[in-house]
Design a protein around this nucleic acid. Structure first.
Lengths: 144, 144
DNA sequence: CCATACAGGTTTCCAATGGATACCAAGTGC
DNA sequence: GCACTTGGTATCCATTGGAAACCTGTATGG
């Protein structure tokens, strides 16, 4: 079974068969758009893509730059992004081996769309933080 | 400690103290923008917000509409969105009790930014699926 | 010769997360 | 008294994510 098999824990190989897809309904589990959204809506994909949109980077450079990412997640997420055609992986047989990741035109398109969200987050952070404080206060803040 | 405490499993109450934040570096773990992005970059938030942007909805209406969401996740995610000030929760003391969720102006702003991503996903699905097939073929597809 | 370091991972282990299911409250209908 | 409604919580268990160890292959230092 080539479609729907699981490859790497946490990043499934889900490629829906054409006849299984329901176009136009993001709320249907098998809608391709929703599956794509699920894939990139994780903690790390956006961050990686955003860094690569500025310049090509190597594995450890990404790791150093993204505070808190583990090697496993960086490795897994890069593999997923590569599979989705959003980044490329170039191995140069230097010593030690050099692996350079770069964003593809496809990935650039996504970044363009994501930038609007980053900008929203930056401009609305204060309001959100205020809302959180108000909520915590009203719900007497000791529920944790 | 009011800030940084954990409330609901899966949706932490993370409100960084002002002096701990690093503005302008999304890659820093304590950057407020990154924390906000982490919060909304999950499987369900975008879907819920998108539905509520069209019309106010009740708990079970949302649950029925979003294929695959569990009551627990819907409940948790709505609570988080409410805390972030992106949705409101209105309880009417009917019988059985009626709870209506609505998007706030703040949430509307986010939806506007997200729509670009939905559109990108819809227009680029085919390319991504093609990339996945190519990847799976090249990596002889049986790695799962 | 052995230890160490580098880059770029994979494996292992364990805690946190998510999903399925059962349960709860409070009232209505039968 | 039982089933059924809405809007949840509690519980159980599988999957996921993070920390750290290990691996491959080469070069450097002692």
């Amino acid at each position: 079974m080539q479609e729907g098999t699981i490859s790497i824990p946490g990043h499934r190989k889900v490629t829906p068969s054409p006849h299984e897809t329901r176009r136009g309904d993001v709320y249907a589990a098998n809608c391709p758009t929703r599956q794509l959204l699920d894939r990139i809506a994780d903690k790390w994909s956006a961050l990686i893509l955003l860094l690569l949109s500025a310049e090509d980077m190597r594995f450890n450079a990404l790791k150093r730059r993204i505070e808190g990412i583990s090697q496993k997640m960086l490795s897994q997420t890069l593999r997923s992004l590569e599979r989705d055609g959003l980044v490329t992986r170039a191995v140069e047989p230097t010593v030690p081996v050099t692996v350079t990741y770069a964003i593809t035109p496809l990935g650039c398109g996504l970044i363009g769309a994501m930038r609007a969200m980053i900008e929203w987050a930056e401009s609305c952070m204060i309001e959100v933080t205020a809302a959180q404080r108000a909520y915590d206060l009203h719900h007497h803040a000791d529920q944790g």
